[in-house]
């Protein structure tokens, strides 16, 4: 980490995006007191992560993606009991809290099976239940949806939204841009140990690609077309993606410029399939931000 600085408001769902190795997980681990920063300061809920680690630990939850972080040989229920103990959940409250969470993540009825027999999705849901046992005020979700199927991922998003609605502050990292777009109130993009942009998903989209994206399906794109398109007035960038039989020419236009006609002229003689003009997505914005860094 070089020098990053950001503030998350209470009750906000804040996204941390960036390529692998950019420092997202390191940032989270510093905030949840697993790593000590060599310099600089960080506070969670007003507590210093170095000097008041115990207070921070009581108030935050941590859930990460993948299938690690659980005791394979214990049942789901025993995993939850263990962590309830570690987090000092009052003995009288434990049973009802665990029942409540099992129901929330849809594991009731399966809680007595050993975790080694759980599917990826079940493990992930158990993880979430574990992270919520002590009703954390801030929840850190490190790539929680990695490797789960679309249905599971959608359920996860619903769960996260519900938590935010109830007032939990969430810090999320993900590689799925639609997920960040759907969930996050604000996003910071980290690249090379620095924050390269912060803002709402809308801000980021506007800030980066203030203009439209045109996608043209071409069957047999002739050589030399891409550089020619790039030289057209009003074209910010042009790239080609292979999609099966066809190539898709993706053209980012300057704000206000309509480049479709000019590009079609360049494609004269080639078989052109579908043509689509769309607003830039968060993914477009992210890729531009990260490649510029």
């Amino acid at each position: 980490m070089k020098g990053i600085s950001f503030a998350v408001e209470r009750g906000e769902l804040f996204g941390l995006l960036g390529p692998n190795g950019a420092g997202k997980t390191t940032t989270i681990k510093m905030l949840i007191t697993l790593l000590l920063p060599t310099s600089g300061r960080a506070q969670v809920l007003g507590y210093d992560v170095v000097k008041q680690a115990r207070e921070v630990r009581r108030k935050v939850g941590y859930v990460f993606g993948g299938d690690r972080g659980l005791y394979e040989r214990l049942s789901g229920l025993d995993n939850l009991r263990y962590f309830a103990e570690l987090y000092g959940v009052a003995p009288r409250e434990q049973r009802s809290r665990i029942g409540e969470l099992l129901e929330m993540v849809g594991l009731q009825g399966r809680e007595n099976e050993r975790v080694e027999g759980y599917s990826r999705g079940m493990r992930q849901r158990l993880h979430i239940a574990r992270g919520l046992l002590h009703r954390p005020e801030v929840l850190f979700l490190d790539e929680p949806s990695i490797g789960i199927d679309p249905v599971g991922a959608r359920e996860l998003r619903t769960t996260v939204k519900a938590l935010v609605d109830q007032g939990t502050t969430v810090l999320l990292t993900t590689h799925y841009m639609f997920e960040a777009d759907e969930l996050c109130d604000r996003i910071a993009v980290i690249a090379g140990g620095n924050i390269v942009a912060t803002g709402t998903p809308e801000d980021l989209k506007k800030r980066v690609s203030n203009g439209t994206v045109t996608e043209i399906e071409v069957f047999g794109l002739p050589d030399g077309v891409v550089p020619a398109v790039q030289r057209e007035n009003g074209v910010r960038s042009a790239v080609v993606e292979e999609r099966g039989q066809a190539q898709v020419l993706i053209v980012h236009a300057e704000p206000g410029a309509d480049v479709t006609q000019a590009v079609l002229v360049q494609l004269e003689g080639s078989r052109v399939g579908r043509l689509m003009t769309r607003e830039p997505t968060l993914e477009d914005a992210y890729i531009e931000l990260v490649s510029a860094a």
């Binding site: 697993l34 115990r54 941590y62 972080g69 659980l70 570690l86 000092g88």
Partner: peptide, 10 residues
């Protein structure tokens, strides 16, 4: 991956 969870507990 549980060692981190143990340390992160209060």
């Amino acid at each position: 991956g549980t060692l981190e969870l143990l340390v992160a507990a209060p």
